[in-house]
Design a binder for these strands. Structure first.
Lengths: 250, 250
DNA sequence: CGGCACTTTGATCGTGGTCAATAAGTGTGG
DNA sequence: CCACACTTATTGACCACGATCAAAGTGCCG
C-alpha cells in the first residue's frame, strides 16, 4: 500500500546490500524520516548494524550508557527492576525510536527486544561528532525527546488516574495507532507482549489484564484470534474509555 | 548563605535593575546555569519578564502552544484535566526549568504556579531564532528534555508499582533533594502544595496522603511544624521506602 | 506424547478509595 | 480583638477495585 520505492535507502546504507533491509521502518518514521541523505549516510556509517532476538537485552539497567540504539523495526520495551524484584515497564518502542539516550553515565532503565529487532548502535562520542557535523540531527533528537516526553506524560496520567479498564483500553488504542502510523493495514494487529508484560506496562497484574481483555471480548469490543493478536471491533467505545470520560458517558 | 555576588547577572539582564532579582534561581541551576553570557543576554532580551501569583495559570491545557516559560524561581505544577473532572498532576517544576516546550500546536497539559513565580516568557518563533543563533542553547534544551524525561520515567515507575507509602516517601525525598540542589539549607523545607495537590501528583486521594504523612510522623520519620512544612528526621528510612526495597528490608 | 510457559477463570483478601464528621487554620469585617 | 465564614487537614467507618492465591485450560516445542 505504501510506495516503498520512493523512499531513499537511508539507514540501509549500512547493510551489506543497499536495499536488503525491507523491514527497516526507521527510514519512514521517527528519527530518520526527516533527515537529509548526507546526514543519514553519516549516521549509518557511524553506527553498527545489530539485530536482537526476542527477549534479548539491548542494554541492561546499570550498564554504562555509552551507546544509543536506533530501532530499525520490531518492538522493544524499557523496564526498571526494583531491588525487591518488582518490575515496571516504562513504555514500548518501535522502529525509528531512539533508545538509551540519557545524560547519565549509567542506564537507569533496561531495554529488551520483544520481537526480532534490527537496530543501529552508535557510540556516544560518535553521536556527539554527528551532532556537530549535522545540527539538524541534534534538532531531531530534541523533537523526538519532546515527543517521547509527551507520550510518557500521557502514560503517567493513565497510571495515576485511570482504572484497569481505562488503562487497557488506552493501551490498545495507542498501540493500534502506532502500528497504523508505521504502515500496518490489517485490522488484526499484533500484541507483541505477554499478559505479564502488559501488566508491568500498565501497573496491573497479569490476571487483571487477562480479565479485562476478556471483558472487552464479551462486550464485543474486540476479537482475539490468539493471545497475541487483537482486532478492535468497537474502537469508539475503547477510545471513549481511554480518554477518561468516566462511567457517566459512553 | 550562598555567595550571590559571585554569579553573573544572567537572566536579570531583563530586569530593570541588573541585580534586582535576588530570588531568580534560574541563573544557578537548570537551563541558564551552563549558558555563556552572550546567549543569556539574548535569551533575556528575547523574553518577557512576567510573574505569577499562587494558583495562577501560566498556560491552560488546550491553549495554543506559542510560548515557552523559563521559571526563575518558585514552584509550578503541570496538570491534565480529564473530561469527567478527574485531575492528574504530571510533575512539579522549579527555578531553571522550562515549561510549555512541546512539538504540538496546543498544550496537552496546563501549568499552574504553586508559589509566587517569576518567569521569562518567550515566543516559539523567537526561541527558534535563538536556537539558530546559539546552538549551545538548543543543546541545553536537549539535555534538559532528556533529564525531564528521566524524572518522568521515575515518577511513572512509582505510580505503576509503588504503594501509597512508597510514593509519599519518594516524593518527600525527591522534593528535599530538589530544594537542597537549589540552595535551601534549613532542615525544615517547604511543601508548596495542598494534600489534594499531592494526591493528584501521586495518584492517591488527599485522605491517603494525609494518613500516610501522619503515619510517618507517628513513626518519628518526620516532623511537620505545619501542613506545608516538613522536616525529614529519618531520611534513611524514607529513602529505603522510596527506592522500592519492599516490606522485607529496612 | 510429555513438559513447559502462558492464559484464563475462580475464590478470597487487603490496600486504598469513598463518604462523613470534626478540627485546625486563614482571612474578613464588625 | 473577636466572630464568622471558608478552606484545608485529620481521622474514622465502610466499601470496592484490583491483588493474591489457586487450579484448570491451551498451545508450542522437544
Amino acid at each position: 500500500m505504501v510506495a516503498l520505492n520512493a523512499a531513499r535507502p537511508l539507514l540501509d546504507a549500512a547493510c551489506s546490500r543497499p536495499n536488503a533491509c525491507n523491514r527497516c521502518e526507521a527510514r519512514r518514521v521517527g528519527l530518520c524520516a526527516p533527515l537529509d541523505a548526507a546526514a543519514l549516510a553519516d549516521l549509518a556509517a557511524g553506527g553498527m548494524r545489530v539485530s536482537f532476538a526476542p527477549r534479548e537485552a539491548l542494554f541492561r539497567q546499570g550498564d554504562p550508557a555509552d551507546h544509543v540504539f536506533i530501532l530499525g523495526g520490531g518492538t522493544a520495551r524499557l523496564t526498571r527492576l526494583l531491588p525487591d524484584g518488582r518490575q515496571a515497564s516504562v513504555g514500548l518502542r518501535f522502529g525509528g525510536d531512539v533508545l538509551g539516550f540519557t545524560p547519565d553515565a549509567e542506564h537507569a532503565l533496561g531495554a529488551e527486544a520483544l520481537t526480532e529487532a534490527p537496530a543501529c548502535r552508535i557510540g556516544r562520542g560518535e553521536l556527539e561528532r554527528l551532532f556537530r557535523r549535522h545540527p539538524a540531527l541534534e534538532r531531531h533528537f530534541l523533537d523526538l525527546c519532546a515527543r517521547e516526553l509527551a507520550a510518557t506524560q500521557d502514560h503517567l496520567v493513565a497510571l495515576g488516574r485511570f482504572t484497569a479498564e481505562e488503562r487497557v483500553a488506552a493501551f490498545l488504542v495507542t498501540l493500534a495507532e502506532a502500528q497504523e502510523r508505521r504502515g500496518h493495514r490489517s485490522p488484526v494487529f499484533d500484541l507483541p507482549a505477554t499478559r505479564a508484560d502488559l501488566g508491568e506496562l500498565l501497573g496491573l497484574t497479569l490476571e487483571t489484564v487477562s480479565r479485562t481483555v476478556s471483558a472487552f471480548r464479551r462486550r464485543g469490543w474486540l476479537r482475539a484470534p490468539g493471545p497475541h493478536a487483537v482486532e478492535l471491533l468497537d474502537r469508539r467505545a475503547l477510545a471513549a474509555l481511554a480518554s477518561g470520560v468516566g462511567a457517566g458517558a459512553g
